[in-house]
Write a protein that binds this DNA or RNA. Structure first.
Lengths: 153, 153
DNA sequence: AGGCAATTGCGAATCATTAGCAATCGTGAA
DNA sequence: TTCACGATTGCTAATGATTCGCAATTGCCT
């Protein structure tokens, strides 16, 4: 089952000395099966359903490790906290609705072209990246109940 | 002088009831003249040189206001804190070197094409966005002293 | 000039994330 | 298979960035 395949997966890309623990297996499994991006707290919440004693520190440590191992990608939306997703579920990018917060994923061959261009023009070796567009989705655009929030209120 | 032009600039786009204060003028002036992106702490440091009593809260409040007014753009790099820059100094994007942290700005007409594509394909009205590529710059790529930092060390 | 609401400064609060440390548990060698 | 050592965990406390609460100021409209 998935636990096993994660174990092999993890072990295969571990650096020497790195251990495969049940916590890491659980967390990686959760992120893998979480169709899309999740934040640390969501992962923590789901992990506790399976292992009520798991610690938030462990979640953060695992995320940091997975990121360093290249297994997951850290995303920076408009918010104060980060989101994570397995990498690469094919290179895709995000579009966030400023009204309802919905995140739509998209992909475009043009992005590969941009990366090439940057590599060439600026002599920079691009290893990853993020494209986050913001705007309004169709639903939110149609309802004119766009209550403009004042700053201090 | 710049103070005055900023005053006119600010007043012109203020909502009714919004005030033009010396603090806001100072802060906006600093961001405008800060060729490129700066973070809140850097702005605070520079602002104190001119007004030692200015408060960090005021800096954050002004940034939030300027962002809401559309005067500055908030950038999310790999870090825990945000960066800001005046908007739009022409639509451009960023490339961060993972080794030395240098940020290179670039622009590409392809990005406009992506936005159009997204608008069309997903019925999403894009109002802004961010493209952050990461990789290694030429200098860091050449020095093979790429000391790989272990996670816990 | 005068008054009221917007803004400031300060300190404390909050939120996400990280660090310290003793107890535990994978794992490679015997 | 067992052992021992070091990697990892789970606490809890610390940190760093950002926001809040509130009394004191101060733009700005009349």
């Amino acid at each position: 089952m998935e636990q096993d395949s994660s174990a092999a997966y993890l072990r295969a890309r571990s650096l020497p000395g790195q251990r495969v623990t049940p916590q890491r297996l659980l967390l990686l499994g959760l992120i893998r099966r979480a169709q899309g991006h999740v934040d640390a707290d969501e992962i923590y919440r789901r992990a506790r359903e399976r292992n009520p004693h798991i610690s938030l520190s462990t979640v953060y440590r695992a995320l940091r490790l997975f990121k360093k191992m290249g297994l997951v990608e850290e995303l920076h939306f408009n918010e104060e906290h980060h989101h994570y997703e397995v990498k690469p579920p094919s290179q895709h990018y995000h579009m966030v609705c400023m009204e309802c917060g919905k995140v739509i994923e998209f992909l475009s061959p043009l992005i590969g072209r941009i990366v090439e261009e940057v590599n060439r023009e600026y002599d920079f070796t691009v290893t990853g990246g993020e494209v986050s567009l913001v705007g309004y989705c169709q639903e939110c655009r149609s309802q004119e109940t766009r209550t403009e929030a004042k700053l201090d209120e």
